[in-house]
């Protein structure tokens, strides 16, 4: 029996080693700490105000800390964070502490990721609306219409007093969230994504956080601009519209609005580009990737789960020749991805 246990664990280890799967029991559902609100604060206005405060927080503060992300499958990643701002600009440095060495620098929407061992830098623009001051977030109205805000008991996170709020989805098309914001600044210091059964799918939090640390923006800028000796790879995405690319949705998933649509250049040796069509309900987002089916690159159909991020891959519309390969990715339940996949329509 003992040998078999060892054998099993070695097999598991082999699988982990070759495939990089982390296997662990799903995190036990955390007891819901939501209070029954004496005076319900589920008014849309409250939610919008509260979210606006959260978004504004990092534009005002300088901080450094250690950030940890864990998923229900047991994967754990952490990084050292430095954040500076000078009113008009924000800069961030994220130094990975787990996995392959990576340094990510962000200056507003401009992001550079340095892969030191491969001497490679990936340059990209983040379209994430929350990164811009005074930018209206698409689907912000949807947030208030599809989630209820419930206060939770105050808690201490990374040594700071926080206000906890739970966003409870009103329908099964989205996940719930628990958010802890630092009391004085409103900075999000802990975030949990919960499935329909209240299980934590993923959580991220500062394990240690200090405000007003002596970090100089020009120092970070110099580090970010030091790309000499690195091969710089630019991620080029051209803005387009779904209509222009010949795609439409027959049926809308409640609360999700189109935020952007881009076309990525075809990989070497490929004729057709890949279209990425993005939707958001203000909190969660869904990307539809459509590209011509290529048996060399597109393997079996299936689903994948990474923390709160679900993926669905399938040939579209069926398995006939000359079809498409559809990948739907989002921090939403699988049924939402399926609804997007089923609603897709070709109009060309």
């Amino acid at each position: 029996m003992r040998m078999w246990c060892i054998a099993r664990s070695v097999l598991l280890w082999c699988l982990c080693g070759s495939a990089g799967v982390s296997i662990a029991r799903a995190a036990a559902p955390e007891p819901a700490r939501a209070l029954t609100p004496a005076a319900p604060t589920s008014e849309g206005a409250d939610l919008a105000v509260w979210l606006a405060r959260l978004q504004a927080a990092p534009r005002k503060r300088v901080y450094a800390g250690t950030y940890v992300v864990s998923s229900s499958s047991g994967a754990l990643s952490s990084a050292r964070i430095w954040h500076v701002c000078d009113g008009s600009q924000q800069m961030e440095r994220v130094e990975s502490l787990t996995g392959p060495a990576r340094s990510t620098f962000r200056r507003n929407d401009e992001v550079l990721t340095f892969h030191a061992t491969e001497k490679r830098v990936v340059a990209e623009k983040r379209e994430a609306p929350g990164l811009f001051p005074n930018r209206v977030i698409p689907g912000q109205q949807a947030v208030t219409g599809h989630y209820d805000l419930q206060p939770m008991v105050s808690d201490r996170v990374a040594g700071h007093e926080t206000d906890g709020m739970q966003l409870v989805p009103r329908d099964p098309w989205r996940y719930g969230y628990r958010i802890w914001a630092e009391k004085k600044t409103g900075l999000v210091v802990k975030l949990q994504t919960l499935d329909g059964a209240g299980r934590v799918l993923e959580q991220s939090a500062f394990s240690e956080l200090q405000f007003d640390v002596p970090v100089k923006m020009d120092h970070l800028a110099r580090m970010m601009d030091r790309t000499a000796g690195y091969q710089v790879e630019k991620v080029d995405a051209v803005r387009t519209t779904a209509n222009a690319e010949g795609w439409a949705l027959r049926s809308q998933v409640p609360g999700f609005q189109q935020t952007t649509c881009v076309k990525r250049p075809a990989p070497a040796g490929q004729a057709n580009a890949m279209v990425q069509w993005v939707f958001s309900d203000g909190l969660a987002s869904v990307s539809l990737f459509v590209e011509p089916f290529d048996p060399q690159r597109h393997r079996g159909e299936g689903v994948a789960m990474m923390g709160a991020t679900q993926s669905l891959m399938r040939r579209w519309p069926d398995r006939s020749e000359g079809g498409w390969w559809l990948t739907v990715v989002g921090e939403v339940p699988m049924q939402t991805l399926q609804a997007f996949a089923q609603g897709l329509e070709r109009r060309k």
């Binding site: 982390s22 990643s77 954040h83 996995g99 392959p100 983040r126 929350g130 990307s287 923390g307």
Partner: peptide
């Protein structure tokens, strides 16, 4: 790059994706 939990993108969402790129995950 284009999505992530958008309203929470600042900063938690960005930090999440930047941190969560590790091969373990």
């Amino acid at each position: 790059q284009f999505g992530g939990t958008s309203a929470l993108q600042n900063p938690a969402g960005f930090l999440r994706s930047a941190t969560f790129d590790a091969s373990a995950s």
